[in-house]
Simulated assay, not measured.
Amino acid sequence: MAVSWIPQRFSGGVLALDVTNTVVLRGDAARSFDRFDDVAEIGRFAEAATVQRAAELGSRPLAVADARAAAPKVVALREATDRLFRKAALHGGMDTDDLALLLSACAVGLTGQGGRIEVGKPMRGEPGRPIAFEAALSVSALSLLPPERLERIRICANCRWLFLDESRNRSRIWCDMSVCGNRRKAQRHYRRRKIVDDADA
C-alpha cells in the first residue's frame, strides 16, 4: 500500500533527518519497518519533500530519474546519517568510523551529479533546476556536521525519530507536538486514571 507522505512525516527539520525517519520504530525488531522497502516510495517521498523542504532546497525540485538505481545510494546515506547522528544525540561528539562512513556515502551521492551546490540554508543553485535526490540528501547531511547544528539534534521521546531542535531554549522533546506530544500526554493521562480507578475498586 502506498505511503501517504503527509507533513507529519517531515518532522525531522531537515531533509537528511526526514529520510532517516523513513525507518519506523528503529531499534524495535518486532515492529520496525522500512517505508522504502517499496523503492517506488523513494520517488513519491522526493515529490513530497520538494514541497515540505522547499526552503532548505532553495525551491529546487528533487529529481529521482530511476528509483531502483537510486535506492542503494539513498539507503546507504540514510543508514550512515542515522548511525552518526543518533550516537551524537545520545553521547555527544562524533564517532570517527561513523563519520568516515557518512562522508563516503555522501561522496557516492554527489559523484557524477554535475552542476554546483552551495552548502547553506537554503541550498543555492540555479532556481527551479532539479537536484538529484541523493545529492540533496548528501548536502543536507553534511550541513548537520557543524557543532552549532550537531548539538541541536535530538531523539523524540515517543517515536525515537531524529529531529533538529531549533527552539530558542533547546527544550523540545517531541519531533511533533501534535502527534508524539499529544500521544504521550494521552498515555500519561490513561495511566493516572487507571491508578485512580484501581485504587477505588
Rank of each mutant, 00 (worst) to 15 (best):
R168N: 10
G27E: 04
P61I: 03
V74P: 13
D200S: 15
P72T: 01
L103I: 14
R31L: 14
D28Y: 01
A80C: 00
R83M: 10
A141R: 11
D198P: 10
R60D: 00
P130Y: 00
E118W: 09
R168M: 08
V108W: 03
A30E: 14
R188N: 13
R183V: 06
A76D: 07
H189E: 11
A49I: 05
G43I: 01
N21C: 08
P7I: 01
R154S: 02
E118R: 13
N21V: 07
C156I: 07
G93W: 03
A201N: 14
R35S: 06
L62R: 06
Q113V: 13
L137K: 01
L84G: 00
A201M: 11
L137E: 01
D34Y: 02
G93I: 04
L110K: 05
F45P: 05
P147Q: 05
P146A: 11
R83D: 15
S140I: 02
G114Q: 03
S167K: 04
D176Q: 12
E79Y: 08
A186D: 04
A48I: 03
P130S: 04
P130A: 02
L103A: 12
G128F: 08
A201G: 15
L57D: 03
E56I: 00
V119F: 12
W5C: 09
T22H: 04
F85V: 14
T111K: 15
W5A: 10
S138P: 00
M1V: 14
E151D: 12
E41N: 10
S59G: 09
L84W: 00
T111F: 09
S171M: 09
P130M: 03
S138M: 05
L57V: 02
R168Y: 05
D18R: 07
F133G: 04
A100D: 12
I195D: 15
G128C: 06
R191Q: 15
A67E: 07
R149V: 09
S143H: 10
T111E: 15
I195S: 15
N21A: 12
L144E: 01
E166R: 15
T111M: 12
G120E: 00
A107N: 14
A88G: 07
Q8H: 13
R149L: 13
V14E: 01
L101D: 13
R78N: 00
A105E: 00
R183W: 07
A71R: 04
H189C: 09
V119N: 05
A48Y: 08
V14Q: 02
D34G: 03
P130Q: 03
N21S: 11
S32G: 08
C156S: 10
L17F: 08
L164T: 11
A186Y: 04
P130F: 01
S167H: 05
V108M: 08
I153W: 11
G13Y: 05
R170T: 02
V39W: 07
H189Q: 14
R191S: 12
R172M: 02
F163V: 01
E56P: 04
Q187T: 11
R149Q: 12
D198C: 10
R192G: 13
K87H: 13
D97W: 10
V23G: 04
G13M: 07
T50G: 08
A70I: 09
P146Y: 04
T22Y: 07
L15F: 02
R9Q: 13
S32D: 08
A107E: 13
K73G: 12
K121R: 15
A89N: 08
E151A: 10
T96F: 11
D197M: 13
A40W: 03
A135E: 07
